[in-house]
Amino acid sequence: MSDNDTTATPLTVELIRADVADVLGEDPQDIPVDENLVDYGLDSMRIMALLERWRRDHGTTASFVDLAEQPAIEAWAPLLGAAS
């Protein structure tokens, strides 16, 4: 996507899951959507990296605090504007 492109690709639950798996070095199927991702090794630096990726690539406006308060994909999906 170019800097001039104002149409961001919408996030989906599966894309969030794949991105989380990517930063954790895991297979997406091994990342549950309904469990605390901190238990799987997700730390604040990785949350920030994911958030920056989603802001850049998908135009999300969620904050770090939003994601850190509820570190589960199913909680993040509505905050990130993810389609089902």
Results as ranks from 00 to 15, higher is better:
Met1Ile: 01
Met1Gln: 12
Met1His: 05
Met1Asp: 07
Asp3Trp: 07
Asn4Thr: 15
Asn4Arg: 14
Asp5Val: 14
Thr7Ile: 14
Ala8Thr: 15
Thr9Trp: 06
Leu11Tyr: 01
Thr12Trp: 10
Val13Ser: 03
Glu14Ala: 15
Leu15Cys: 13
Ile16Trp: 00
Arg17Ser: 02
Ala18Thr: 15
Ala18Pro: 07
Asp19Glu: 15
Asp19Ser: 12
Asp19Gly: 04
Val20Tyr: 00
Val20His: 04
Val20Met: 09
Val20Ser: 07
Ala21Leu: 13
Ala21Phe: 08
Asp22Cys: 12
Asp22Trp: 03
Val23Ser: 03
Val23Tyr: 02
Val23Gly: 01
Leu24Met: 09
Leu24Val: 10
Leu24Phe: 12
Glu26Val: 10
Glu26Cys: 11
Asp27Gln: 12
Asp30Ser: 15
Pro32Tyr: 02
Pro32Arg: 08
Val33Gln: 00
Val33Trp: 03
Val33Cys: 04
Asp34Gln: 12
Asp34Pro: 00
Asp34Asn: 15
Glu35Tyr: 03
Asn36Thr: 02
Asn36His: 02
Leu37Gly: 04
Leu37His: 05
Val38Ser: 09
Val38Tyr: 14
Val38Gln: 08
Asp39Cys: 03
Asp39Tyr: 08
Gly41Thr: 12
Gly41Asn: 08
Gly41Trp: 07
Leu42Phe: 01
Leu42Val: 04
Leu42Ile: 02
Asp43Thr: 01
Asp43Gly: 13
Ser44Leu: 06
Ser44Cys: 07
Met45Pro: 05
Met45Gln: 10
Met45His: 12
Met45Cys: 09
Arg46Glu: 08
Arg46Ala: 06
Arg46Trp: 03
Ile47Tyr: 00
Met48Lys: 07
Met48Glu: 11
Met48Thr: 13
Ala49Lys: 12
Leu50Phe: 01
Leu51Ala: 14
Glu52Leu: 12
Arg53Phe: 02
Trp54Asp: 04
Arg56Ser: 13
Arg56Ile: 05
Asp57Gln: 10
Gly59Leu: 04
Gly59Phe: 05
Thr61Arg: 05
Thr61Gly: 06
Ala62Lys: 13
Ser63Ile: 06
Ser63Trp: 03
Phe64Ala: 14
Phe64Tyr: 15
Phe64Arg: 12
Asp66Phe: 00
Asp66Pro: 09
Asp66Lys: 09
Leu67Lys: 06
Leu67Ser: 10
Leu67Arg: 08
Leu67Trp: 10
Ala68Phe: 04
Glu69Cys: 07
Glu69Ser: 11
Gln70Phe: 05
Pro71Ile: 04
Pro71Leu: 10
Pro71Tyr: 11
Ile73Gly: 04
Ile73Cys: 00
Glu74Lys: 15
Glu74Gly: 06
Glu74Phe: 10
Ala75His: 06
Ala75Asp: 07
Trp76Thr: 09
Trp76Met: 10
Ala77Gly: 11
Ala77Ser: 13
Ala77Ile: 01
Pro78Thr: 08
Leu79His: 08
Leu79Val: 11
Gly81Phe: 07
Ala82Cys: 08
Ala83Phe: 02
Ser84Glu: 14
Ser84His: 09
